[in-house]
């Protein structure tokens, strides 16, 4: 197959970037989107053009390292990550625009590579259960209803890719944050820290400069882990109640 690529090139975090046009020739239909870029990079190298820089690691849709906004859609059309997007899904000869994830809190570092450390700091603000290795009771001492465990797993499936914030017209990270708040919040082990967790994580999210949620649901549509926006509703509730509790001094 053959494609006309319009790729965002940017030499550094401070410099201005622009779109460059490249041709992707004889691409096998079985190739993944990133393998297509590998091939393009190979012959850019031959031509003496600096290869396109983009993140990827596991290449099987689980590490959340790959990004890319393809024709305006983070991770491209259809559920799943960029590394699990296959070229047979595109039309031969199609023009494909490739841009980095866009959000003010995800500064572009180079070409298609963005900095997602804002997510790290949100996790550090409360995305954990305070517990020490060796202090745990027997794993079966607290039964957890299957449905609760399953729902918690649905939320825990988030791969931290940042597509939600990149898709959101407001650059809001609500889906990511709500996934973690829901994952830990549903479990009895997480319960003691629920108020603290949601307060600290949401406040950190705001500090990082992510936008507010206008209930556009673009995040839900692109999320490769299928995190539902209903978790955002849940977090809205939890956060407001936790704030009230804190103001009357029954939560820290």
């Amino acid at each position: 197959m053959k494609f006309n690529l319009e790729v965002w090139r940017q030499t550094g975090p401070k410099t201005e970037g622009k779109i460059e046009k490249y041709e992707a020739n004889n691409i096998p239909a079985e190739a993944s989107f990133l393998e297509m870029l590998d091939i393009v990079n190979e012959d850019l190298t031959k031509k003496g053009v600096e290869p396109i820089q983009f993140d990827s690691d596991c290449r099987e849709g689980i590490c959340g390292n790959c990004s890319l906004t393809i024709n305006g859609v983070p991770h491209g059309q259809g559920r799943g990550t960029t590394c699990q997007l296959y070229m047979r899904k595109f039309r031969d000869g199609q023009t494909i625009t490739i841009e980095p994830f866009r959000a003010d809190s995800f500064p572009v570092e180079r070409d298609l590579v963005v900095n997602r450390e804002a997510f790290e700091r949100i996790m550090q603000a409360g995305g954990f259960i305070s517990e020490r290795a060796g202090s745990a009771p027997d794993a079966n001492s607290v039964p957890i209803p299957k449905i609760v465990a399953d729902q918690s797993m649905d939320a825990a499936a988030c791969i931290g890719c940042g597509a939600c914030a990149a898709a959101c017209p407001n650059g809001s990270a609500m889906l990511f944050v709500s996934a973690k708040v829901t994952h830990l919040g549903l479990l009895p082990q997480g319960e003691p820290e629920n108020d603290r967790r949601v307060l600290n994580m949401v406040r950190q999210m705001d500090k990082e400069g992510f936008g507010n949620c206008s209930n556009y649901y673009a995040c839900e549509a692109v999320c490769p882990a299928g995190i539902p926006a209903s978790f955002i509703a849940r977090m809205n509730r939890e956060y407001s109640f936790a704030s009230i509790k804190q103001s009357v001094g029954i939560a820290v």
Partner: peptide, 19 residues
Amino acid sequence: KENQAARPKKYIASDPIQT
């Protein structure tokens, strides 16, 4: 105002997802 600031750069190939 805040939402504008949080997403200053629009996508060139924009595709209104879901909304």
